[in-house]
């Protein structure tokens, strides 16, 4: 198959309906005034005109609560909790969330490999969709470089003039496109349209941060002590919304749950967050990160400093969810810009 193909909007929904033979289809669906990823029965439930879902699609490859192993005490035995992982199609993923998937990949594929994540991820076919206009004031995808496709998908859809241009990125992507006569080759004219669309995007999408990422990194290296953190920490209510909705937050806690026979049980993991009061508390009662100032700072450092040192990758995707969901108006773009401003002022001696 060609690397670029296209499908007319008239045939598009027919094709979406055909996807269920490749597994359950999870796609953005309307929920009250917002959207959520949900299994869809057919294309009528799909709504691609969305800003961002409440939770990122990470819930499908890193579920909120996930069984790890079954055990019994007498006789002492353990067994896999999940025997079979299902194939599924993750449909209509924005480029920011695709960046999130790539971040998770880096983390969970690091030694020791995370078998549950990999089992799910290997059975996932990802269909991306390109945003044509900036979504809202909360996103910072341009500064993070994620307003354009940068991989992490099996196919990418870009809507142009009554059609979707499809970029094919993998064998899995080819599998879901094959056998449909209405999926056509792209002409040179189509490719030119795609090029000019991307050029136009450079004009429409504006950088949200007042400095380049290199400067952001430098600022984070220098300003671990700053009034900006005091302000953010003071406003934080500690609800944990920011980390729950973050596409790159991957912390979890592991718990054992006994059956009522008090002999068999299940070990599971569930999402946990550095924003929780007890997160860094250890035996003996010592808390390594007391207070909301240090906890909020830590969250930012896990996006703009530590993962760059460790994986050479920013762990903010620019999706804007943390700012959108924050109860206390803590805004990621504002925080980063305030830090940059403070650093510039310090540098020139104000």
């Amino acid at each position: 198959m060609e690397r670029y193909v296209k499908i007319s909007k008239k045939d598009f929904y027919k094709w979406v309906d055909s996807l269920k033979k490749h597994g359950k289809v999870y796609a953005p669906k309307r929920k009250e005034n917002t959207h959520v990823f949900r299994p869809i029965k057919d294309s009528s439930e799909l709504d691609l005109n969305y800003i961002s879902t409440i939770l990122p699609p990470k819930k499908y490859y890193f579920p909120q609560k996930e069984s790890l192993l079954k055990f019994s005490i007498k006789p002492f035995e353990t067994a896999k909790a999940i025997q079979k992982f299902e194939e599924f199609v993750l449909f209509g993923v924005h480029t920011c969330d695709l960046a999130g998937i790539q971040c998770m990949d880096v983390v969970f594929r690091e030694d020791p490999l995370d078998p549950n994540y990999i089992n799910r991820k290997d059975r996932m076919t990802t269909v991306g969709i390109e945003c044509l206009k900036p979504c809202d004031k909360h996103a910072s995808c341009v500064s993070m470089g994620n307003h354009v496709p940068r991989g992490g998908y099996d196919i990418m859809l870009t809507e142009i003039k009554g059609s979707y241009i499809i970029h094919l990125n993998s064998q899995k992507g080819e599998d879901i496109l094959q056998g449909h006569s209405y999926i056509k080759k792209c002409t040179q004219a189509d490719r030119n349209l795609l090029d000019s669309l991307r050029k136009n995007k450079e004009r429409v999408f504006k950088e949200e941060f007042i400095g380049q990422l290199t400067e952001v990194y430098t600022v984070f290296s220098k300003l671990s002590e700053s009034g900006v953190w005091d302000d953010v920490g003071k406003r934080c209510v500690g609800c944990g919304n920011c980390t729950t909705v973050c596409p790159t937050c991957y912390c979890f806690d592991v718990k054992d749950e006994l059956d009522l026979n008090l002999n068999d049980g299940l070990r599971y993991r569930w999402w946990n967050s550095c924003q929780m009061d007890d997160f860094a508390r250890v035996a003996g009662g010592e808390d390594f990160r007391p207070g909301r100032v240090s906890r909020q700072r830590h969250r930012y450092y896990r996006k703009f400093k530590y993962p760059i040192d460790k994986f050479n990758r920013y762990f903010c995707t620019g999706c804007g969810r943390c700012s959108r969901t924050c109860m206390a108006k803590i805004n990621l773009t504002e925080t980063v810009n305030d830090l940059i401003k403070e650093h510039r002022n310090v540098s020139i001696g104000i």
Binding site: N33, I54, L55, V237, G238, G240, N241, T244, S273, D278
Partner: peptide, 28 residues
């Protein structure tokens, strides 16, 4: 549990009541 209801509410992907103009005591 020593974390607020918001944590579980977000995991359940409920639309935040504050966004609908209601004052909910979940955050504390």
């Amino acid at each position: 549990p020593n974390y607020p209801v918001c944590m579980e509410c977000k995991m359940n992907e409920n639309v935040c009541l504050y966004q609908k103009g209601q004052d909910c005591l979940g955050p504390v």
